[in-house]
Design a protein around this nucleic acid. Structure first.
Lengths: 123, 123
DNA sequence: AACTTATGTTTACACGCGTAAATGATTGCG
DNA sequence: CGCAATCATTTACGCGTGTAAACATAAGTT
């Protein structure tokens, strides 16, 4: 059961801070997304059906908490792309960005550090 | 105008070798995908509408050629993911795979080489 | 108790996608 | 020439998505 892009926007809010009410979610996401309240409610209900969030009654409203972890989601998404486009290998992906000149100085520095760490830990 | 996943499967065949007839595409993709001929035709027509492929009549059938380049497609897809999930920065993405233990020895070697090259060329 | 407000639940609707069946057109064969 | 085979084009249909309107319900207010 995959979660859609609009649903992921809602999850993002919850990953930022939870639990939250529908209203709070709308407040954070409405401006950029131009959504109505009903839209957010629908998305939350679909996420409930998909067991991606949990809702706990709090008086008249619900508090929503993510069940699906950001890490899991990121994992699925990136693995999908990696497999589909780069034969499941990371180096070609980085090479791609490199050719596209999408590697910032900071990226390069961090990559270097990462490799150095891998060198030590050997894991 | 984005191209869907099933459409991308067809594009993949064409990126491998073009021009091709619908029949050839089916032959290459049918087994793994379990598609009927009509399915491939529909996908080709949708790709035509999206200007992702070009069709040239050849007697009774058409020869299809990709207009959208693989590089463009890969670019869009990866940028999308990168922006949505890693704030547009490459290093965090690689770090993610690293944590997931998805970096093969070969990946690491290649990344190292890549960084070395970047070092020289300074581009 | 009736009315308003806040919130959630149900229903809707158009669009793209995956998948194909139905139909149409062209051509080779008997 | 008429029929069968070969392609292509049109139509279909269920499902998920993006987006919300309509409806229901509970709680606070007069």
């Amino acid at each position: 059961m995959t979660i859609s892009e609009a649903e992921a926007v809602v999850m993002d809010v919850l990953w930022g801070k939870a639990p939250r009410t529908a209203e709070e979610i709308l407040a954070e996401v409405g401006p950029s997304q131009n959504w109505q309240e009903g839209t957010v409610k629908s998305l939350l209900n679909r996420l409930l059906k998909k067991d991606a969030v949990h809702a706990e009654r709090d008086g008249r409203r619900y508090l929503y908490t993510p069940l699906l972890l950001r890490e899991q989601y990121v994992q699925q998404e990136s693995k999908g792309l990696l497999d589909r486009l780069f034969g499941g290998r990371v180096a070609p992906l980085v090479a791609h960005f490199s050719e596209q000149r999408k590697l910032s100085e900071k990226d390069i520095a961090e990559l270097r550090k990462l490799l150095a760490e891998l060198d030590n830990e050997q894991h």
